[in-house]
Design a protein around this nucleic acid. Structure first.
Lengths: 243, 243
DNA sequence: CGGAGGGTTGAGATTCATCAACGCGTGTGG
DNA sequence: CCACACGCGTTGATGAATCTCAACCCTCCG
């Protein structure tokens, strides 16, 4: 059965959510799940809805975002396979302040909300993992608030590129895996501003060509690498897999 | 002893952190604490520091905020007595992305970080409470991101006043307990802009006089009360103590 | 070949920050 | 008791950053 394959997949085993869980524990959780397919553009959850499941993304791409009645929206997180969402709405189970949308055809493990909230009360590893996951979201959200209010557009873009580099193990070239218009939205700006910012960054040692990014040495060590980032640079190995 | 008094105080008993804990459990936690005094302006934690304690504010006022090397800063949360901070940095214990400052002379319970991280692994109520607290922070942070990127200054101020009204049980008048310059910063704008926004809101039924706010009926039910807020209005009683 | 989606570029509009001046209440020292 | 300074908030004028709108380009795909 497909769940039995999943059980031993790297995707599960290296995820934050299944981290440290024994086979028996993982199997018990899997027993309370089903796999759902979502089409590109389909909503997994809409604003105001009380979630019945927690999501573990198996493949594809999910965005968590928030929209105004007028129709404009802001992307909060962009998830790829192995990441989870909707945990933060389970404690306590409340109407969701955000919505979740598949931006590509996606496959996700739907974990029953009731089961997880109960299971977290008896299993320390699960509740600990959830704490780590939600705390990580919260810290990321703080950085988002920081950069949107305190930094200008060009800085935000530079910071974003730098974080991508760090997350991939401090490589100096990589691909942008999301649409530029989505990245712009995530960074709290319009696509036009992102485009102009990237142009601005070329002067500082950034090359971008059709989705491929190359960062020069000077950029990697430059002004964008502030105190916090420098700390991360120094201990890259231990942090490269983080976030 | 003062800790024994604390044990039965409403402050502790009605807090999210000590919620549902038995006397024995609360006593065990208190055994791993000490009480610290902070002067107005003193730093409880600086950016980059690894916290040794989790804070439970007994009296006074703490801000969690983030600053740039250039010195500008943004307030993330404004805490009053009974609230906690620095939990989100304990899972895992990392250099703090934020700093914590006392904005008034304050007294806080310092709970040993090592103890709490261990205790959370054996006590479900504690880990559950922590989950609820951090999830609440995260949801609030999402709303902050939403309003800063998607709404204009006047809307943000109106929304803020409305949330104050709801949190106090949907009263139509109340005092602003923070300095206006701090409120402005928290809302991601300058004091000048806050001032002008309040003036703008007067046309919509808001009266502000030296820190005292009066909201008209029309304002309470007006455009600021969007779908999410309306839901809260309907079931006010169950939500009034929330946030 | 033609159309659609995504990205870029340019020009104008707008919001908000900045800078400077002022008013007001409070506390302090002569 | 008055003079003064200081913190805080307001108001007005100016400027900068970014959004908006429009045109255009490129690539992909039927």
């Amino acid at each position: 059965m497909i769940k039995e394959e999943l059980l031993h997949s790297r995707l599960l085993r290296e995820s934050l959510f299944f981290n440290q869980l024994s086979d028996a524990e993982a199997r018990e959780i899997l027993a309370h799940t089903h796999i759902s397919d979502y089409q590109r553009g389909e909503y997994v959850l809409t604003q105001g809805q009380i979630p019945e499941f927690m999501m573990f993304l198996l493949s594809g791409e999910l965005f968590t975002l928030r929209s105004t009645p007028e129709g404009s929206e802001i992307i909060i997180r962009m998830l790829s396979a192995g990441e989870t969402c909707m945990e933060a709405i389970l404690f306590p189970p409340d109407p969701s302040p955000i919505m979740v949308r598949a931006t590509k055809a996606s496959k996700a493990l739907c974990i029953e909300a009731d089961f997880i909230t109960q299971y977290a009360k008896t299993n320390h590893k699960v509740s600990h993992n959830l704490l780590i996951i939600i705390a990580k979201y919260y810290r990321a959200a703080i950085l988002q608030i920081d950069s949107i209010t305190l930094r200008d557009a060009t800085y935000r873009v530079g910071r974003y590129l730098l974080s991508l580099s760090l997350n991939r193990g401090q490589v100096n070239q990589f691909d942008l895996i999301y649409k530029k218009s989505d990245i712009a939205n995530y960074l709290g700006m319009t696509p036009e501003t992102l485009s102009r910012s990237l142009k601005e960054l070329q002067k500082l040692g950034v090359k971008v060509e059709s989705g491929h990014v190359h960062l020069s040495e000077t950029f990697l060590l430059g002004e964008f690498c502030d105190a916090v980032d420098k700390k991360r640079c120094i201990c890259t190995t231990s942090l490269s897999s983080e976030r």
